[in-house]
């Protein structure tokens, strides 16, 4: 790849937030003097993304994911460090930059509640100065892909959450952004809608080569969509790589399960026993010992359902963030 689409160096963001203890007396004291406390939402972040990459930000609540995303989008001015997106400094908020990016937030809508989405699209056409021919083609493509041809003519107020999110995506993509920021895009959606949105984002990325940066609570979203993930915790970058690499790093053991008429007497010699119940045995085994263990298990009488898996993602996440669940920033 040539030039990076996103480059972040030494990025920091500090907020000062008022604080007070609970209760009436503290409230009265705060009346006179308000105490502030500096929260370091993002500390010394460093990474770069190539054009067309799909990247997920993972982290517990208040880890600094959204703050980082908003600094990349130019909404929040960094306290220190450098950000460059598509060759621009986002916080300058130059129109040329803003025409190249787009942000979709699952919890906040941009579409006007009382109007049909199509009116909102038309408005975006003017704002982004999209030429009418191009606009028409693009609208047709997006509405076909997301199947909102009929939905977009009804007032947004009457749409279901999923339909609304689809319309939000259309609105965000009409101007053909090179970088797409997605903040919890599937929050509150049912499983099939989540799958649909995920599939759409993947296709859009493949066909248009846009860089996609995603934050999500749903591990599945990130795992299914992003070949590369950045784990941010306490405002720091804790991991940068593929989801597989993350899994291996946090939970190097493989999970081997089998069902057999008789189980070995001392399975602890093979690995850590997760479950031993009836004829079923589940073990966590070091990667280099897997062939040997599998061989031994296959040899068991009436062995069946033998499977070797990575540790489940949720468990990986729990292991990763379990220590400091306490969120620092609301």
């Amino acid at each position: 790849m040539t030039a990076a689409m996103v480059r972040v160096e030494g990025l920091c963001k500090r907020f000062s937030v008022p604080r007070r203890e609970a209760g009436l007396r503290a409230a009265l004291r705060a009346l006179v003097r308000r105490e502030y406390r500096v929260v370091e939402a993002v500390r010394d972040l460093e990474f770069s993304l190539a054009p067309g990459e799909r990247v997920g930000f993972l982290g517990p609540n208040g880890a600094g994911k959204t703050t980082t995303l908003k600094m990349l989008a130019g909404l929040i001015v960094p306290s220190a460090g450098r950000v460059e997106v598509a060759g621009f400094t986002p916080s300058d908020r130059r129109p040329e930059f803003l025409r190249r990016v787009s942000l979709v937030m699952g919890q906040k809508r941009q579409l006007s509640w009382d109007l049909p989405a199509i009116d909102n699209f038309e408005f975006n056409r003017v704002v982004y100065e999209i030429d009418p021919v191009h606009y028409k083609r693009r609208l047709e493509e997006l509405t076909a892909l997301l199947d909102v041809g009929e939905v977009m003519r009804r007032p947004v107020r009457q749409l279901s959450l999923g339909e609304r999110m689809k319309c939000e995506l259309v609105a965000a993509l009409l101007h053909g952004p090179q970088v797409l920021f997605l903040d919890e895009p599937t929050i509150g959606l049912d499983v099939s809608m989540q799958l649909g949105i995920r599939e759409f984002i993947r296709r859009y990325n493949a066909e248009h080569g846009a860089t996609v940066i995603l934050t999500s609570h749903y591990m599945e979203d990130v795992a299914a969509l992003c070949p590369r993930i950045l784990v941010i915790d306490g405002g720091r970058l804790r991991f940068d790589g593929s989801i597989e690499a993350l899994r291996r790093q946090i939970r190097p053991l493989r999970r081997v399960s089998v069902r057999a008429a008789a189980l070995p007497d001392d399975p602890t010699a093979m690995g850590r026993v997760v479950l031993r119940e009836g004829g079923r045995l589940v073990l966590d085994v070091a990667p280099e010992r897997v062939p040997e263990v599998v061989g031994a298990l296959v040899a068991l009488p009436e062995a069946q359902d033998l499977a070797v898996q990575d540790a489940p993602l949720e468990e990986v996440m729990r292991a990763l963030f379990g220590r400091e669940e306490a969120a620092e920033l609301g």
Binding site: K70, A73, L75, L98, L103, M105, Q107, Q110, V127
Partner: peptide
């Protein structure tokens, strides 16, 4: 209040 000013500020104008 709702945080949707984000969208307004992201428009290229």
């Amino acid at each position: 209040l709702k945080g949707t000013l984000d969208y307004v500020l992201l428009r290229p104008a």
